[in-house]
Amino acid sequence: MTEAEVAAALGLEAIHAGEGTREIKGIYAGDLLSRVMSHAKAGNFWVTIMANPNVVAVAMLVDAGMVVLAEGVEPEPAAAAAAKAKGIALYRSEKPAAELCIAAAAAGV
């Protein structure tokens, strides 16, 4: 599934949408960025509740496919700005992380 298809299927709100055409492959959930850095994989659908701008830095580092802030978390303004500046696909949702992961898996990610 592409970023745009996943976003539409899960009803995600874009903070900064990427090009939308990238294939999203695999699901990763985690908030401790030191763990994410060493465990998430390229192209992943990454769900987190961390709102700090370092989320964007880590998404770049692991080449995440898209990042979703779960549970109604709002990004810190600097995080939203960084996503735009660095071209990272950053979304948010009111749904909890587990629900988002289950929905993403059901959608075929």
Binding site: L32, S34, V36, M37, N52, P53, A57, V58
Partner: peptide, 8 residues
């Protein structure tokens, strides 16, 4: 451990 690296 939380942020992985020093933030800006």
């Amino acid at each position: 451990s939380v942020l992985g690296m020093f933030p800006a």
